[in-house]
């Protein structure tokens, strides 16, 4: 099984290598100026030299990402459970939440910078708003996802609402909750980086990108983007790994034993 998974990784890995090689070749052969497109080797060199700066940027941004992610997802989950008690509230909040989820929420970044200052709390605030609604909408849908038969079963036990929630509806909602958690990893990164375009102390990935673009330090921009990509993938991968452990029973993961 491990062999099979490794074998699945070979083609994308090869394609990535070919792509990088072609990029390097084209840049060298055509003498593309570094302010337009630096070669992968140049980006790698810049990355190695700039590790301290990149690390400082990373820590600055990740503070806003994580604080906002935990607060946004946490409050979305709690509000969803509260809303779930009332059919009226659910019918009113769900279309509202769906609408807001589709809006360009990053636009509130300048307002949050005004309210909470240049440092990471304002980025966290943007992330809170961006991650809250997907979590709310998904959790509410997830709490509804238990089948009527499963609910009837709880009714035949004369289970209380609280027992039905903890024993049936919350576990049944977990796949939906994790869906939101995964989507929100990317939204949190986007929110924090874009918010930094609107103002930050002189550190942070979004700050680095916007200033280096101004100085035409394109290799540094690419190095920062590499960090952002690695961070985003690792964050997503971590949540996906937790999901696999917690919702191992879900149809998308389980494997029948022989």
């Amino acid at each position: 099984m491990i062999d099979r998974r490794l074998a699945d990784l070979v083609p994308p890995f090869l394609l990535g290598l070919v792509f990088l090689a072609a990029w390097e070749l084209v840049v060298r052969a055509a003498n593309v100026p570094a302010i337009i497109l630096p070669a992968p080797s140049a980006i790698a060199a810049r990355f190695v030299v700039s590790v301290p700066t990149l690390a400082a940027d990373f820590w600055q941004t990740i503070k806003g990402v994580l604080a906002g992610y935990v607060l946004g997802c946490g409050s979305g989950l709690v509000v969803a459970i509260l809303v779930d008690r009332s059919d009226f509230l659910r019918r009113g909040l769900l279309p509202f939440g769906n609408l807001v989820s589709a809006l360009p929420i990053v636009g509130i970044a300048p307002i949050m910078v005004m309210w909470f200052g240049f440092d990471w709390p304002s980025k966290a605030a943007v992330v809170v708003v961006m991650t809250f609604f997907p979590m709310l909408v998904n959790t509410v849908a997830g709490l509804e996802s238990a089948s009527s038969m499963e609910r009837d079963l709880m009714k035949t036990y004369a289970a209380t609402d609280w027992q039905t929630l903890t024993a049936l509806r919350l576990p049944a909602a977990l796949p939906f909750v994790f869906n939101a958690l995964k989507v929100n990893t990317t939204l949190a990164m986007i929110g924090a980086i874009v918010a930094e375009f609107f103002g930050t102390p002189i550190v942070g990935m979004g700050f680095r990108i916007s200033t280096e673009v101004g100085h035409l330090g394109i290799d540094m921009v690419w190095a920062t983007i590499l960090v952002a990509a690695l961070t985003g993938s690792a964050f997503y991968g971590l949540v996906a790994a937790i999901e696999r452990r917690v919702t191992f029973w879900h149809a998308s993961f389980r494997r029948r034993e022989a």
Partner: peptide, 18 residues
């Protein structure tokens, strides 16, 4: 899907400007 590709936006603007 897991990468904040929006981070590329400022650079694309500048490159196209070139």
């Amino acid at each position: 899907q897991t990468v904040p590709i929006i981070a590329l936006a400022p650079m694309i603007v500048v490159i196209l400007n070139q």
